[in-house]
């Protein structure tokens, strides 16, 4: 089970979300000028990335808002969460690591009261990681 940090609601179980496929697939500027192959590629052809992959997610049982997520398809590590319409953060920039999976840290149930902070600086791979995905009260597992 992924623990996904919604930009509005804080960390929630993966089951509250819906997957929206690859992010940053622009609608063709002149769709009428595309031939069938180009149109099919726009509609159906997506990257099958091994590694960091930008994808869209919808917090369907929470705030019902879309957001983008940069996730490693091998390790499931969530590297960044960023708003719709913004460019993909440099995959090597490690700007916003996030707790991608349920932490086994003893303090993983603690939470703050601040708005969700998606610019946390560490992943929950060590037992000393504070719950960097601060969330609204009651919003974390």
């Amino acid at each position: 089970m992924l623990l996904i940090s919604c930009p509005n609601c804080g960390s929630r179980d993966e089951t509250e979300f819906h997957y929206g496929g690859q992010a940053h697939v622009p609608y063709p500027k002149n769709p009428n000028e595309l031939n069938d192959r180009q149109w099919a590629e726009f509609l159906f052809y997506r990257d099958n990335t091994k590694g960091a992959f930008a994808e869209r997610w919808l917090h369907s049982t929470g705030c019902r808002q879309w957001f983008n997520m940069l996730r490693d398809t091998v390790t499931y590590e969530i590297q960044a969460i960023y708003p719709m319409g913004t460019p993909r953060p440099d995959a090597a920039g490690r700007t916003t690591p996030d707790t991608g999976t349920a932490s086994t840290a003893a303090d993983s149930t603690t939470t703050g009261t601040a708005a969700p902070d998606i610019s946390g600086t560490s992943t929950a791979t060590t037992g000393t990681t504070p719950a960097s995905t601060t969330a609204p009260e009651g919003a974390t597992k």
Binding site: C9, T61, G62, T109, T111, E137, G138, A139, T140, K141
Partner: peptide, 16 residues
């Protein structure tokens, strides 16, 4: 969700 009163205070509403 963490429903413990130290986290979830009275007067909070969450969609979940």
């Amino acid at each position: 969700l963490d429903l413990h009163p130290r986290v979830l205070k009275a007067g909070t509403a969450l969609s979940t």
